[in-house]
Amino acid sequence: MKKIVLTSFLLLSLAFCFSQGYETTRYGVRAGVNISNLDFDPAPVSRNMHRNGFYFGGFAEFSLSETLWLNTELQWSAEGAKEEDWRANYLNLPIQLRFQIGNNFMIGAGPQIGVKTWKSADAYDTIRFSGVGGIEYKFLEDYFIDVRAGYDFKNLLDESLAPLEATQFTIQVGVGIKI
């Protein structure tokens, strides 16, 4: 747990350092729905391996140039599968490098680290690493809608379940406000 806290602190400090010297820093909140799907190897028989859930979180965006932004976020997300034994909720820290396209669109991608918060989901490893990418559309001065996709880089399951392995693909659709 100390490694997770230290890594998170270092990443947020790095983001803060990048923001120094540039005029614009934006903060905000976002929330929406998740659609997550577990892919097993070898594939289990007759299981519903997706889950519809929700997420919410806060973020900070740091201007690196006129069109380049660094986005850091702390987000709680309900993921995993519908069956209770395969549910997993995470506290995620996505970090994206984002490019502004025109006045209303942004696209971005980057890594994400997550820590499991659902104590009864013993099948899952405590920490996960994934990649995340998405697009944002600003429809009012400070309001936006966004769509993101995330895919895990490594097996999500605890080593005790070997040779069973699982990765997760998650889609998030939500709204937010920049303060």
Results as ranks from 00 to 15, higher is better:
residue 1 M to L: 03
residue 7 T to H: 02
residue 10 L to Q: 08
residue 13 S to P: 00
residue 14 L to W: 04
residue 15 A to I: 08
residue 15 A to K: 09
residue 15 A to T: 08
residue 15 A to M: 11
residue 16 F to N: 07
residue 22 Y to D: 03
residue 23 E to R: 07
residue 28 G to H: 08
residue 28 G to L: 06
residue 30 R to Y: 00
residue 31 A to H: 00
residue 32 G to V: 15
residue 32 G to D: 14
residue 33 V to A: 15
residue 34 N to W: 10
residue 38 L to N: 03
residue 40 F to Q: 09
residue 43 A to Q: 10
residue 44 P to G: 11
residue 45 V to A: 12
residue 48 N to K: 15
residue 50 H to C: 05
residue 55 Y to E: 05
residue 55 Y to A: 11
residue 58 G to H: 06
residue 58 G to L: 06
residue 59 F to D: 02
residue 62 F to Q: 01
residue 63 S to R: 11
residue 63 S to A: 15
residue 63 S to C: 02
residue 66 E to S: 02
residue 67 T to G: 01
residue 67 T to K: 07
residue 69 W to Y: 13
residue 71 N to H: 09
residue 71 N to W: 05
residue 76 W to Q: 04
residue 76 W to I: 03
residue 77 S to A: 10
residue 77 S to Q: 02
residue 80 G to N: 10
residue 83 E to Y: 09
residue 84 E to R: 13
residue 84 E to F: 10
residue 86 W to M: 11
residue 87 R to V: 13
residue 90 Y to E: 11
residue 90 Y to I: 10
residue 90 Y to K: 09
residue 90 Y to F: 15
residue 92 N to A: 02
residue 94 P to W: 05
residue 99 F to Y: 02
residue 100 Q to C: 03
residue 102 G to K: 00
residue 106 M to D: 05
residue 107 I to Y: 10
residue 110 G to A: 11
residue 111 P to D: 03
residue 111 P to K: 03
residue 112 Q to C: 03
residue 113 I to M: 09
residue 115 V to E: 07
residue 116 K to T: 06
residue 117 T to Q: 08
residue 118 W to E: 12
residue 119 K to R: 13
residue 121 A to T: 10
residue 121 A to G: 15
residue 123 A to D: 13
residue 125 D to M: 12
residue 127 I to W: 07
residue 127 I to Q: 13
residue 129 F to S: 07
residue 129 F to T: 14
residue 132 V to L: 10
residue 133 G to A: 15
residue 134 G to M: 02
residue 134 G to L: 03
residue 135 I to R: 00
residue 136 E to D: 15
residue 136 E to C: 06
residue 138 K to P: 00
residue 138 K to E: 10
residue 139 F to W: 10
residue 141 E to G: 15
residue 142 D to E: 14
residue 142 D to M: 09
residue 144 F to C: 04
residue 145 I to F: 15
residue 146 D to R: 15
residue 146 D to G: 11
residue 146 D to I: 04
residue 146 D to C: 08
residue 150 G to M: 08
residue 152 D to Q: 07
residue 155 N to L: 14
residue 156 L to K: 11
residue 157 L to I: 12
residue 157 L to A: 12
residue 157 L to G: 12
residue 158 D to H: 13
residue 161 L to P: 07
residue 164 L to V: 13
residue 164 L to G: 06
residue 167 T to D: 14
residue 168 Q to D: 08
residue 172 Q to A: 10
residue 174 G to V: 14
residue 174 G to N: 13
residue 174 G to L: 14
residue 177 I to A: 00
residue 178 K to C: 00
